[in-house]
Simulated scan of single mutants.
Amino acid sequence: MAASTSETTCPTTGRYTTMRDSTEWLYAALRPLFAASVTEKATFDQYFQDAEVLLNALALDSDPRFRDGQHRHIRPSWTGLAAVYDRYRSPGANPAAQLAQQAAVEGAEWGPVRSGLFGSSAERARKATEASLEAFTVPPRPTPSARPEREACNSAAHAG
């Protein structure tokens, strides 16, 4: 499946310039695949953001340093649309907050835990979803670009 990359890729390398651009590409690539079963755009938007949040919690839980308390990873670089749109939500509509609440309230009976995710551990699920909540609600700290060409590509992509 080809996707339009004219405004989201570096004109020199053809690579995506930011994780938000990559997330938007993934959204655009997946949307047609689910169009027949999820006809409402708003419903697909919610499912997509719910999936981002769950994947973030699973990524945190997959890191043994996180599970052992040696490493606290607050904001992965790919938090995507759920984090971008957090500031525009009405209270109680944050998918990360909803996921953390489900994990805490349902514990061992929560579907993902019952299905074997988070090592079938309600405590691991609670810990990862709470950390994920922070990732999707704490504003990112500005960081300098690691590569000069990325800085140039980001500037070029946003100048138009």
Rank of each mutant, 00 (worst) to 15 (best):
T12E: 12
T18H: 04
G14K: 00
S6H: 07
R31T: 00
W25P: 00
C10V: 05
R15Q: 12
T43I: 14
M19H: 11
T39H: 06
A35N: 00
T9F: 03
R20T: 13
P11F: 05
E7S: 14
A35P: 01
P32L: 03
A36I: 12
L33S: 06
W25Y: 15
L26P: 00
S22A: 10
E40Y: 07
A42E: 13
R15E: 13
T39R: 15
L26G: 05
L30H: 04
A36N: 13
T39S: 14
L33Q: 14
T17N: 10
S6N: 05
A28P: 02
P11T: 12
A29T: 11
L33P: 01
A29V: 11
T18C: 03
T18N: 00
T23A: 07
Y16S: 04
T18V: 02
E24K: 08
E7L: 14
L33K: 12
A28C: 04
S6F: 05
A29D: 12
D21G: 10
S6R: 10
Y16Q: 10
R20Y: 12
L26C: 07
A28S: 13
P32T: 02
Y27V: 01
F44S: 02
T13I: 01
F44R: 04
S37L: 09
R20A: 03
E40L: 10
C10S: 15
E24V: 09
S6T: 10
P11G: 13
K41T: 13
E40M: 07
F34T: 13
E40A: 15
T13Q: 03
F34P: 02
W25I: 15
A42I: 04
G14R: 14
P32A: 01
T17F: 03
A42C: 01
F34K: 06
E24T: 10
F34D: 06
Y27R: 13
L33T: 06
Y16V: 05
T43R: 14
T13S: 15
L33H: 12
S22Y: 06
V38L: 15
F44M: 06
A42S: 14
T8D: 08
A42N: 09
T13G: 03
L30C: 10
R15S: 07
C10K: 02
T13P: 04
R15L: 09
A35W: 00
M19L: 06
T13C: 07
E40G: 04
T9A: 13
T18I: 01
T9M: 08
E7K: 13
E40I: 11
S37M: 09
Y27E: 02
F44T: 05
T8E: 09
E7W: 06
A28T: 12
R31Q: 10
T18P: 05
A28G: 03
P11W: 04
E40F: 05
V38G: 02
T12M: 04
C10N: 07
E7C: 07
L26R: 05
S6P: 01
Y16H: 14
T17H: 02
Y16R: 15
T8V: 15
T17R: 11
L30D: 05
